[in-house]
Nucleic acid binder design. Structure first.
Lengths: 216, 216, 216, 216
DNA sequence: GTGTAATCGAGACGGTACGTCTCGTCTTCTG
DNA sequence: CAGAAGACGAGACGTACCGTCTCGATTACAC
């Protein structure tokens, strides 16, 4: 009945983990990345800022990347309610806007950039990032697309994985390269651009016009 | 019309820069990044491998990022001949394939990943990367798109910058996140997906079908 | 006449101290010092080896030195029976051989070396060592010498404290520096060398008087 | 002819070692041991006090013990002139007084105590200490004794190594245990006590023969 | 029996120092 | 005088113990 799993049946021995410190570490890491970029978020700085010893951090996280990843997961709520019964198009737009808001207005942005940077040289970070961050989000988007195909909204020959890349790749591109501002309009334009190519057309011009996306 | 700038007019005094060493440094850096990832390409390792003193490297490059950037520029030839008189669609496809080949089959891939990682914490690296790497490539693509608009191939209300992001963002996304293979087919699919949305349609289905891209 | 103080008059409440663990700690400490030198006998290692928590050790001993000292006292039996009515010479020889056997063939050797090492930087250890270990032994030796003087065996102008140092100093010297083997023969030679200088002679010796040394 | 080995023939390349820093490290280590005992002389404290980075210390010395040993050697001048043509007795007295002055009035005392403490758990320190500190001093004393035997001053059946222990062992004993003051008078008394037993006598003594001790 | 009080294991925690690593600067000597 | 060789200060790395501090479980006396 209870949706909360009974995980406290076997009470572990010894002094229990101090959850306040766990949060302090995650906060400190996020703050430092916000302030000075990820180069400023050294283990020693995190420990100092959090008022925690380095050993405590190493006890619970294997690397700086793991701290950042957990901070990222904590700070990004579980996907935000997708509207029930919405079309694929509408659902994708919600996801895109949520992503931009998350990385643009919360500590999750610097955290995510930090993680992707670390992932370039640390395969474990890359794997964790794909599994814990990217995977769920891509699966959610893929599910939306698959449902759209089934409902006849989208072309039946759709390459779902590629479509997800087309929708969100441009957002990550701007996030990491910074050559242009990462706005909600841009994210919506990316989704709409995708939709223009994959929407099933009996009645062609039902989709949004290219630059009208933000006006929707 | 010579595209090579006359840079040797004023012969500088003293011993001239040893170009052989310059190349050795760039080679060593590229090799190390290929072998052990960018974490292996420390300044000391580069100096040792190149048979050059650290000081010589610092003399000519301000940071490890600068070395990588120059190595990247050296290794990526000036875009390869674009077919004269080709359509915007064809030109973009050529660019996309060239990009995937470059980052997928040459030392430029690891170098580029390294640079983007460093750029997350070093604004100078980010700026240099945008100016020297991204800028020229985006300008080339933008020019192609603008020409396409002028020739009436593409919609007149096209947001050129966004379109460039839509064409190449997915490629960088896969390059950096590694969740799916970065193939030429995928790059072509990205371009085609873009084209489907921005091609001017008197005759609607002239563009390629979504999954037929690679067969073109 | 009972030498054991009545210490159990006021039975304390609560769970009493577990004497088996007390012994386990002392054994573990001694074993570790035997095996890996005193550097191996960390508090954590002792606790682990003894199957006891660190807190239990800190409850009963203030420092590692205190553990070692108690281990040393436990392992060195109460002086061994000195022969009744023996001469000062014979008694000293017995003490010397007992000392060498103790430090050479039992865990007391490493324990003692450990304690003296710690005593160099921890005054409390030094004090405890002098009071509990060195003091009783030196007093026993001094008493033997004083008795010898009174019986007319030894010179009346004997500096007892210095004589004790001359008899046992060389033994500690070899124990700690390890430049030569610490054998029973050597210890006996040290005692005999002392005796040759302090034994009362029928005809006063031509050599230098014992306490006149500094006036030379 | 020159007794100094030509060690600079092959000039090494690169920046030469900074001798000022070498001295600063040795001074800092000695100072710290004087002030706070050897426990205060951590590598980090030495580095900080000397205004030198830790890495520089580790570059030239393998361990804290090595630093202390070199400081000890630097601070104890090469034996001080022994009087030419002096008797064995006089020479030993000079050595003994020099030793007490060294360890009692200079930083060499704490340094030596530190080294002997470390030697208890680090075999390399013990070996270095025996070879570089104890060896030369014991050899000098042994040579004095051997010369005394040859000149007929001392008994021909003298066990030289044991005699050296008898002369200096008591000094180290008091240095390390600290149960009594380590004065020059005490050191002289130790030497004289030894001499009383090993000086050749016109009329053979009634006391026990030097090497017969263990047969008693 | 049922508190009540101490002991004990387990282990989290803030610290300090360790010895290593790489960075970027500097100093000297060699070609 | 350019450049290699490399010494150096700085500072983060990840580890090891220290000594203190919760916890919950256990044990024995006292009521």
């Amino acid at each position: 009945m209870g949706r909360v799993v009974q995980e406290e049946t076997t009470r572990r021995r010894g002094r229990p983990r101090d959850e306040a410190r766990r949060a302090a570490v995650l906060d400190a890491a996020a703050d430092l990345m916000l302030e000075g970029g990820l180069a400023a978020a050294t283990m020693e700085a995190i420990a100092g800022r959090a008022g925690v010893s380095k050993q405590t951090i190493y006890k619970w996280w294997p690397s700086r990347g793991a701290v950042a990843l957990e901070g990222l997961m904590v700070r990004s709520d579980p996907a935000g309610a997708l509207p029930e019964g919405a079309s694929a198009a509408e659902s994708l737009r919600v996801l895109a806007v949520a992503l931009v808001r998350l990385v643009g207005s919360t500590p999750a942005g610097p955290l995510l950039r930090s993680l992707i940077a670390d992932a370039q040289s640390q395969p474990e970070v890359a794997a964790a990032l794909r599994e814990q961050w990217l995977g769920p989000r891509r699966r959610a988007a893929a599910e939306i697309l698959r449902a759209g195909v089934e409902r006849g909204e989208l072309r039946p020959d759709l390459d779902v994985a590629a479509a997800v890349d087309h929708a969100f790749g441009p957002v990550y591109y701007r996030l990491l390269l910074g050559h242009e501002a990462l706005t909600e309009e841009f994210a919506l334009a990316s989704v709409d651009q995708l939709l223009r190519g994959i929407t099933r057309r009996e009645q062609p011009p039902g989709g949004p016009g290219y630059l009208d996306a933000s006006s929707t």
